[in-house]
Amino acid sequence: MPEIFQLSFMVRAFIGGGIVGAIAPLLGTFLVLRRLSMFVDSLAHVALAGVAVGLLFNRFPIMVAVGVSIAAAVVLERLRASNRMASDSALALILYTGLAVMVVLVSLGNGFNVDLFGFLFGNIVTVGGPDLWAMGGLAAAVLVLVWLLYGELVQSTFDPDLARVSGVPVWRVNLALAILTGVTVTLSMRVVGALLVGALTVFPVLASLQLGRGFRMTLLVSAALGIVSVFVGLTISYYRDIAAGGAIVLTALGLLVAISVLRGMITRLVRPASR
């Protein structure tokens, strides 16, 4: 067995990373196609504020972050649904509020900055058994949601107004998607870090959209690319002794670039210039 798999923390990293690598792009497919690529980033900053609250009071930082990011997801959806402001403005409002709260809490709580760094940039080797159970439960919830509400999710992504007129409960579907995204973001922070979790949600989807023929295939391919990015990134990180979060995201970027280039070459071969 390779050395990397003889270390229990690396095995846990591969399992946890694999789970996050699959579900983040699965939800990301719906977000990217709704032009909400920054949704994850906004929730990640709020989740960081939640972690900071937990660290300040020395009480369950992850659980506090989950609660805070769910609340932020609900507020975000309400703001978007009310048409009181454009979606990108609502995202900016939540993102900077989260960031400001975190900065204030960091200045108040001398000493926990090092712990917060682990959530900011990711520290996959600290993923423990309870984290894996939480990630497994979340993965099950995401899979059930996508399975049961596949038609509703696709229709409200295609066009929310058209979906409403077809009888789809768009607000409730959006809320379910937002809440699960909030939880996914929080649990993914240990793997890639709050600053990079958005990239793991978006890059595999962008790559998959280059290949996908149909919605189901796009979902499957984006999840597969997410898993590959995590596994390759973790391996490189271990053998080259570099930060896992960065290695994972750069691997996802590499896959996106490679697929885009390959697609361009194939398109040129199939459709030669008509001069």
Binding site: Q155, F158, D159, L162, S166, V168, R213, G214, F215
Partner: peptide
């Protein structure tokens, strides 16, 4: 519709089938 402005990964047949939604 929103989907016309993004690279929406659905075929013509799929999109028309959405109209058969019954819950």
């Amino acid at each position: 519709v929103n989907a016309f402005t993004v690279r929406f990964p659905a075929t013509v047949g799929e999109v028309i089938s959405y109209a058969e939604y019954r819950g």
